[in-house]
C-alpha cells in the first residue's frame, strides 16, 4: 500500500475527537485516497458501485470509529482509512456477487416475517440458547424490531426493505436513490449497528432494567 502522508497535527486532533480536523483531513486526503482505491472496484461492478459511494461510506465509518484510531507513524491514518474502504468494498462486492448468483442467498427466504427476523438475527451472528425455535423466533423478532427502530432512517430503510420485506436490491436502490453498491455498503453498516444494539443486555429484553 503506497504511503499517503497526512499532517500530523490534524491527525492528532482528529484522533482526539475534533470533527473539524477530521473533516479537513478527509478533504485533503480525498484525491490521493481516490487514486489509491480507484482500481480496486472490479470493472464489472463499476456501473452499480461508484467511487463516491465507497468514499462516503468510508468517511461515515471513519467518523464513527475515529475513537479507536491511534496515530502511529507517517501514513498510518491513510492506511486506516483505506482498510475501512476495502472492508466496505468487499462487503459490497460480495453482496453484489451473491445477488448475481442467486439473489437471496445471503438472506433468509421470507416465508413469513417471523422467519425473516429469525434469519436476519442468525445472519447477524446471533445464537439462541432457547431450545424452542418458536420461542426463538418470537424473541428474535422482538429484539430486532426494537433494535431496528433505533437505527438511523437510512439504515432502517435498507434493513426493512431488503432483509425483512425481501425487495430486490434494484427496488431498494431506486427508493433510496443510491446505487446498489452503496445500498450493500449501507446494509453492511446497518448490520454492524444492529449487532451492537442486539448485544446490549439492557435493550435485548425490553423488560429488563
Amino acid at each position: 500500500m503506497k504511503s499517503i502522508p497526512a499532517p500530523a497535527d490534524l491527525v492528532q486532533k482528529a484522533a482526539a475527537g475534533d470533527q473539524a480536523a477530521l473533516t479537513s483531513l478527509f478533504e485533503q486526503l480525498d484525491p490521493a485516497l481516490r487514486d489509491s482505491l480507484r482500481n480496486d472496484i472490479p470493472q464489472r461492478w463499476r456501473s452499480v458501485l461508484g467511487l463516491d459511494d465507497l468514499m462516503q461510506e468510508t468517511y461515515t465509518d471513519a467518523f464513527l470509529d475515529i475513537v479507536d484510531f491511534t496515530p502511529r507513524q507517517d501514513g498510518s491514518f491513510a492506511r486506516w482509512l483505506i482498510t475501512i474502504a476495502k472492508h466496505n468494498l468487499i462487503n459490497a462486492v460480495q453482496s453484489l456477487e451473491a445477488e448475481k448468483r442467486g439473489g437471496k442467498r445471503r438472506r433468509v427466504e421470507p416465508e413469513g416475517q417471523d422467519d425473516s427476523f429469525l434469519g436476519l438475527y442468525e445472519l447477524l451472528g446471533g445464537t439462541t440458547t432457547t431450545p424452542s425455535r418458536q420461542a426463538a423466533r418470537h424473541e428474535a423478532r422482538e429484539a430486532l424490531e426494537q433494535a431496528i427502530e433505533q437505527l438511523p432512517p437510512d439504515y432502517r430503510l435498507v434493513v426493512r426493505m431488503y432483509d425483512i420485506e425481501g425487495h430486490p436490491v434494484e427496488d431498494v436502490s431506486q427508493t433510496m436513490k443510491r446505487s446498489p453498491g452503496a445500498v450493500f455498503m449501507l446494509r453492511a453498516r446497518a448490520h454492524r449497528a444492529l449487532r451492537k444494539l442486539l448485544g446490549v443486555p439492557l435493550k435485548y429484553f425490553s423488560d429488563f432494567a
Binding site: 470533527q19 462516503q56 468517511y59 467518523f63 464513527l64 437505527l151 437510512d154 449497528a193
Partner: peptide
C-alpha cells in the same frame, strides 16, 4: 464528507 458526517452522527446518537 458532510453527508457522511451527518450519517455517522445519526448512528452514533442511536
Amino acid at each position: 464528507i458532510e453527508a457522511a458526517r451527518e450519517s455517522a452522527g445519526q448512528l452514533s446518537a442511536a
